[in-house]
Design a protein around this nucleic acid. Structure first.
Lengths: 204, 204
DNA sequence: AGCAACTAAACAAATGTTTAATTAAACACT
DNA sequence: AGTGTTTAATTAAACATTTGTTTAGTTGCT
């Protein structure tokens, strides 16, 4: 399915609203109004509200894929891990809307929206992490640790920081003028680097 | 507000459905049917659907508070940390429904349901973690690490494991007959113990 | 003329809430 | 214990909105 500019515009508006208010909390009229189009256009272009969500997931899903070429030129295992984390955090921040939608939808039992696509993405990313870990083991720098759990901690920590933005703004006395994404980028990257390094080099 | 048995029954049914389908994905008729009561009873008892949610949050919020007496008898800093994590995981598992509702609602911008109660709870729990960390520092066993980030990693890892139960059942080839909560309890506790110990004893 | 893009209006179903009436429980008084 | 009275619990029905979707028609472009 190729998407024209009009459709893309609708998708972006929908993404924004779904992330903010949830799928059930967003009506097609909300989307239509914000996108300055007629309600009927949503069904005209996408068939239904649910199919709009599926199209959006398809459209965005691959943007969360880790790209190993961003870090595997590093021969030092620790530096490679650091680069991977930087790359990972950057990807999540750039595409935070769709990920939040996917994460929320994944916990909603009554819609099984594209969970296959979601699973594939996870498996792929977990495998990238696994390769970085194995490289470090091979170099005798890391001790092996389950990449599924590493991934869970990475994504979980990110999501938790993100979902509770307002709490952290209070808690950490963040300057409201300073961008929260910048805080995320810096603090989260640093924290994840430290945590993974600690786990992978910890003597049992 | 004191809650009679009938009201409690409604709250429990609502909690179940909200966790499964989200607040917006659950209608008052869904609740009424599953609780075998008339729809009007919900407004009769709670005033509105939103107030029902607020009552539920009030009713459950305190059940997530860490209870220091469950671990602070341990004089060994590492053992105390381990006990604290066991206690923490157990609390989260026992009250997973309400926590998922709170977490989802916290990310929904249009409802600012009881976020104050939520923040207070976090601050309290973070402080408990802080005290355990400081005790370990005092004993020269730990290096100090930001308790906010530790808490974020704990809760984030838990939530991420939980929210993606189906994915993990596939990924880890879990025996479907085995209880997922039992896997959570064991694997998560072990992982968090290892992670926090690694972070707190890591030489920089 | 033909086709895609677009619109206003209507549709049926579902939503949260209220009303008005009925039943059940608690109460006070003899 | 039995009376009439008041209060609380419960019900079916109706209410007004809002929901996602469809229809039937119009516009604009080739």
């Amino acid at each position: 399915m190729d998407i024209n500019d009009k459709q893309k515009e609708i998708l972006l508006v929908a993404e924004d609203l779904f992330a903010k208010n949830g799928f059930d909390g967003t009506s097609v009229r909300d989307i239509a109004q914000k996108a300055s189009i007629n309600v009927a256009m949503i069904n005209y272009y996408f068939g239904s509200k649910e199919k709009l969500l599926e199209t959006l997931v398809q459209y965005r899903a691959n943007e969360h894929r880790i790209d190993p070429s961003q870090y595997d030129f590093e021969t030092d295992a620790l530096k490679r891990l650091d680069r991977m984390i930087e790359h990972y955090v950057e990807k999540k921040i750039t595409n935070q809307h769709i990920y939040q939608i996917l994460a929320t939808e994944a916990s909603v039992k009554k819609r099984v929206v594209n969970s296959q696509k979601f699973k594939e993405l996870r498996l792929y990313n977990i495998n990238c992490i696994k390769e970085v870990v194995e490289y470090g083991c091979q170099q005798k720098v890391f001790k092996y640790y389950d990449p599924i759990l590493l991934h869970t901690t990475m994504i979980g920590t990110f999501m938790n920081l993100r979902m509770n933005q307002s709490i952290f703004e209070d808690l950490l006395h963040l300057d409201p003028k300073q961008d929260f994404n910048q805080f995320l980028r810096e603090a989260l990257t640093k924290h994840l680097k430290f945590t993974l390094k600690a786990i992978l080099t910890h003597e049992n």
